[in-house]
Amino acid sequence: MDWLGPEEWSAVALSLRVSLWATLAALPVGLFVAYILARCDFPGRQVLNGLVHLPLILPPVVTGYLLLLTFGVRGPVGSVLHEFGITLAFRWTGAALAAAIMGFPLMVRAIRLSIEAVDPKLEQAAATLGASRFWVFVTVTLPLILPGILVGSILGFAKAMGEFGATITFVSNIPGQTQTLPSAIYAFLQVPGGENAALRLVAISVAVALAALVLSEVLARKMARRIGTS
C-alpha cells in the first residue's frame, strides 16, 4: 500500500482495531441492556434508558471530558485500573472505550427494536414446552433477533470508525497510538499541503462506511429469509 504514507496507514489500521474491539466489547453489554429495556419492568428503567442515550445527545467533547475525569489516571475508576496496570487515557484502549460508549446508544436501539418485534407469545409457547428463561432466550429470542444484533453491531462499528470528539478529548491525537482516521484527517487539514493525504483518508472512510452498510443489508436479508420473518 504505497499510495498511503506510514502515518496514514497506521491511522487506518488503528481505527479498524479500535472499532472492532469497541463493537465486540459493547455487544454483550448492549444485548443485555437492550433485553432488560425491552422485556423487564423495573424501577429505574427510564433512568437507564436515559443514561444509554446520553452519549447521543451530549456534545462528544463533554462525553470525552467525562471519560477523562472518570477513567483518567487520577479518576475514580481510572486510578483503580491503573493499580492493576491498565491505563486507558491516551492509549488506543481508551479510544476503543470512547468509541464503544459513543456507539452504544445506536447498538442498543437496534437490538431493542428487534427484541420488541419478537412476539412474546412465542416465548410463552417455548416456556410451556419446557424451556427455562435462559433456554427460551437462546433457542427462540436470540435466533429471531440475529438480524437486529447484526444491524446494531454494524451501526456501532460505523459510529466507532467515525468517532472524533470524545476520542480526541479523552486520548488526544498521538500518531501511531491514538490517532484514528478522523483524528488523522483533522491533523492533515491543520498543516499546509496535507489536503491530499486527508482526501485519501476521506475516501477510505467513505469506502468503509459504504461497505459496512451494504454488508449489513445483505446479511440481514439473508438471515431474515432463514428465520422466516420475510
Binding site: D119, K121, L122, Q124, A125, A126, V140, P143, L144, R226, I227, G228, T229
Partner: peptide
C-alpha cells in the same frame, strides 16, 4: 394455542 405459535426459525 389459538394461533399455532410455531417457531418461525
Amino acid at each position: 394455542f389459538q394461533e399455532a405459535r410455531l417457531f418461525p426459525h
